[in-house]
Each structure stands twice: as structure tokens, then as C-alpha cells.
Design a protein around this nucleic acid. Structure first.
Length: 431
RNA sequence: GGAGAGGUGGCAGAGUGGUCGAAUGUACCUGACUCGAAAUCAGGCGUAGGCUUAUACCUACCGAGGGUUCGAAUCCCUCCCUCUCCGCCA
């Protein structure tokens, strides 16, 4: 959420910056709502003040045993007007709130201008593109012939966009997650957290998934007492529960930065991506991810972003995967993000790079919704900055290992760093 | 699932219709005392919003939402959460 004070003081400036990411801010409507809000709020507070002081007088008069009918008649009139004007004020404020919640974050000045994915900026390529002296197979073919990937059974159990992993492939998948967690906790200073996979609407609102992106989520209705109904939502990323750890909290400045890593499943409805990436593990309703979250002082959030990006890259380097880092342009960054780097891994079977991590600085956008603040000594509480990044998407990393490490006979050479997690296995082959 | 207790400021904890945004303690900040510190004493110390050049002033907030009333932390209704005991259970 943006600071409403900023919209009041520099509406056109905000509109211009939002325009760079293709968002049209209805400045006339905002100005209109604000003007109404202002006059009605002033009037409301005036009336409340009148009522309060009259009520005080009544109390004092009664204490002295005096007659109060005259003043009570007077204040009754105030009450009438108050009742209707308070309703108006509430409606206006919820209109404004709705509008505000629908505004995406302002891109940082350094974000390259652009309309779409095509305008993203390649920052660097790292590693060496693997060369094969045989025809490469894709991960589906490899996984199935290893007896470790079964989409038909998954379709029977659940439907499209689910998978069943078996044997060595299932273990490799687990090994990847363990390796990532261990690396981030042992070498990068993150604290491992285990968090709920079902969260409430407040948490989804806090990180920006709600109200705008409800159709991307799996909602789990929940019957409460006496006809009450509330929803749980399956998390689309660990970002949601982990970042919400600091919702409504005031963190002492000396505890910063908070660095958390969590390994969770992620659930996405993939509404609107029908027909895209239907083959294989690339786009699933359920997948695993190791997520890095940092909660930091505003002064250091951009340094923290570079650091976090480096932590994610380390995983790829240790796995020996070829990848590139891409700076997303204004037209392609996510709703809540001020700056985003994507890491894309090389997939030889597709002859292309595919996203395997996304690292973002949200600045105070999420913190404002979350009321996540820090306090130093005597100072007032201030909003924190929040960041996160995948470190990495486990399913897609598995795809990358299968495809990049395939041998001519369809077996897979296990990266050295994973072997301790695989009982020392060096090559994964059928049976 | 059954029975009970409770949700108040950073924390602890008073407050059952009228100067209560809230006693008191503690933490924190400032000052005095001290060579310095501790102890002690004095003062300050919630959040959000409005209006304002600025002070000042005003409004809202005592788990959430609704209601009664001239007036609600306090009374009524609904919901949520926490704790204790019993039962069941991975």
C-alpha cells in the first residue's frame, strides 16, 4: 500500500510513476473523493466534539442534581445529524481505502523502463552452458524412464498440474530442499522457520495477495459458529506466512535485520494460465519452494536485496547450473514490488532460460499494510522494509538437474553437493 | 466434544455508565545529585487521523463488529483469540 500522504501531496507525481508500469491512476476520482472526505470529516468531528462537551455538561449537572432536559433536547439534534454523516464518512473512507489497496507499488528509480518481459534487462550470465554429444531429453522423458515421475497417477488422484515423484527422483527432490535449507542456515545466516500453510485473509492482505489477486489462490471455506464464515487460504508462497511474522509488531532496531528461511509447499490456482506449460513439472498447482525473507532497516534494503540475490545464486553455483540474472522492467515487476531480479536457469531441452527465483524489495509497501515497524531508542516507530526471494523453487531446480545432468543413457549424474543427501549416490539410473 | 476463566498502553496490572486515553508498578527518555555509575528525587513517555506556517486545538482507538444511551473500557448481542480442567486424537 502506498502512503496516502504522498498521494495527497504529489498526486501527479505518483500517477506518473505508476504510469511507467502501465497502471492508470484515476487522479480526478481520487481528488474528488479526498475533497469530499475532507469536508465531511471536518463536519463530523465538529459534531462529535459538540456532543462530547454537551454530554460532559450533562454529567456535571446531574452530579449537582440540576435539571438537564433543555440541554438534552439540544444534543439530541446533534445526534440526528451525526448518525447520517458518520455513515457517509465511513463509506467515503472505505472507497478511498479500496482505491488505495488497488494501487501497485512505485517502481524504484533504477528500474529499467519497459512494457513487458521483452524489455527486461539481462544483468549477467554465470556458469557454462552444458554441451551434449547426444540428443537431449526433457525432464518428463527422463523422469518417466527412471520410473520417478508419474503424471497419470497424479491426474487420477487429483487432476491436471499435479505430480507423483518416486524413488530416487523423489529423494533427489528432498535432497535439493535439504541442501538449500542447510546452505542458507549454515552459511548465509538465516533462521529456519516452520510456518502454517493455511493462513487467514488478514495475512493475505498484509503481503498484497488480497484483495486484488483472490482468483490466483486456493480458498478453503471454514464454518464458524452461528452462521459465521471465514476463509483460510492455501499459501501461494512462504512469503505470506513468514513476512506476516512481523505484522503488528514493533521490532527493536538492534534486532535487525531479521533473516528467515522456510521450506514450504506452495499452492497456486493458475487461473488464467490455461494451456501454458502444461507439460511436466514447470507449472503445478502444488510445488515446493525454499524461501528467503529479510526484514530490514529502510536504509539498507537495497544492499540487502543484492545480498539476498547472491544467496539464491550461491545455490545454483554449488549445483553447477548455468543461469542468468535479469532485472525486471517497470512493466513486468509484481504488484507489491519496487525492484525485482529474476534468476533464470538454463534448460537444455527447451533451449532457453526459465525463471527459478525471483528476488524483490518491497520497501515499505508491505510493511505499511502489515503495520510492521521498528523503533530505535527514543524515536517514533517507523515502517520496516521487507524483501524476499526464492532460494530456490525446488521443483524447477529438480527439472534443471535432470535436464542439465543427463547422461547419454538417460541416467543422471548427481551434483557433488547433493551426494551426502543421497546416501553417497553418484549417478541416478533406472531400478 | 463438555466445563470454566480471560482478552485494557512496550510489559505487568487497576478500572462495572459521566472531566477515563485510562490509576499504579515496571521499562524507556530528560534533568538534579555524583569524579562516574548505582540508588534516590523531579519531569516526560501510546497509536492513527483532522486542522494549522507552527504551537494550540479537535476526533477516533481498551480483541473485532453491531446495539442501547445525551454519554460506553464499563450494559446487551454476535464473532474471534488465549488459558485451565475433562474426553477424544496424529
Amino acid at each position: 500500500m502506498l502512503d496516502i500522504q504522498l498521494l495527497r501531496s504529489d498526486l501527479d507525481g505518483v500517477a506518473a510513476r505508476l504510469a511507467t508500469r502501465g497502471f492508470v491512476l484515476d487522479t480526478a476520482r481520487f481528488g474528488d473523493l479526498e475533497a469530499q472526505r475532507k469536508s465531511i470529516q471536518v463536519r463530523t468531528q465538529e459534531l462529535q466534539s459538540k456532543r462530547n462537551s454537551a454530554s460532559k455538561l450533562i454529567g456535571q449537572a446531574k452530579a449537582r442534581g440540576e435539571d438537564t432536559t433543555a440541554i438534552m433536547a439540544e444534543v439530541a439534534l446533534v445526534g440526528e445529524e451525526l448518525k447520517s454523516i458518520e455513515v457517509q464518512l465511513m463509506e467515503l473512507q472505505s472507497e478511498l481505502q479500496k482505491m488505495l489497496e488497488g494501487l501497485p507499488n512505485l517502481p524504484h528509480e533504477s528500474v529499467p523502463l519497459g512494457k513487458s518481459e521483452a524489455d527486461n534487462l539481462e544483468v549477467r550470465k554465470v556458469g557454462r552452458m552444458p554441451v551434449f554429444d547426444f540428443a537431449v531429453k526433457d525432464h518428463v522423458e527422463l523422469g518417466e524412464s527412471l520410473g520417478g515421475l508419474d503424471f497419470e497417477t497424479a491426474a487420477k488422484i487429483s487432476g491436471a498440474r499435479f505430480s507423483v515423484l518416486k524413488g530416487g527422483v523423489a529423494r533427489l527432490h528432498r535432497a535439493l530442499a535439504q541442501f538449500m535449507l542447510d546452505t542458507h542456515t549454515d552459511s548465509h545466516g538465516y533462521t529456519e522457520v516452520y510456518v502454517p500453510y493455511l493462513v487467514n485473509a488478514d495475512s493475505m492482505r498484509g503481503t498484497g495477495q488480497l484483495p486484488k489477486f483472490e482468483e490466483d489462490l486456493f480458498r478453503v471455506p471454514r464454518q464458524m459458529g452461528e452462521g459465521g464464515e471465514q476463509n483460510f487460504y492455501l499459501i501461494p508462497t512462504a512469503e505470506v506466512p513468514v513476512t506476516n511474522i512481523v505484522r503488528d509488531e514493533i521490532i527493536p532496531v538492534e534486532q535487525l535485520p531479521l533473516k528467515y528461511v522456510a521450506h514450504t509447499p506452495c499452492f497456486r490456482s493458475e487461473a488464467g494460465s490455461a494451456g501454458r506449460d502444461t507439460r511436466g513439472l514447470i507449472r503445478q498447482h502444488q510445488f515446493e519452494k525454499v524461501e528467503l525473507v529479510q526484514i530490514v532497516h529502510p536504509d539498507v534494503s537495497y544492499a540487502a536485496l543484492e545480498q539476498l540475490l547472491g544467496h539464491a545464486e550461491t545455490i545454483l553455483q554449488k549445483l553447477g547450473l548455468y543461469y542468468r540474472v535479469v532485472r525486471l522492467c517497470t512493466g513486468d515487476i509484481g504488484f507489491s514490488s519496487a525492484t525485482t531480479y529474476d534468476i533464470e536457469v538454463w534448460l537444455p531441452a527447451q533451449n532457453t532460460f526459465r525463471e527459478i527465483s525471483s528476488c524483490s524489495n518491497f520497501e515499505a509497501f508491505q510493511a505499511r499494510r502489515l503495520q510492521a515497524r521498528f523503533k530505535s531508542g527514543t524515536g517514533k516507530p517507523e515502517l520496516l522494509h521487507t524483501l524476499n526471494g526464492s532460494g530456490l523453487a525446488v521443483g524447477r531446480t529438480l527439472v534443471a538437474i535432470l535436464e542439465n545432468n543427463q547422461l547419454a543413457d538417460g541416467s543422471i549424474s548427481i551434483p557433488e553437493v547433493l551426494r551426502p543427501y543421497m546416501g553417497g549416490l553418484e549417478v541416478l539410473s533406472a531400478n
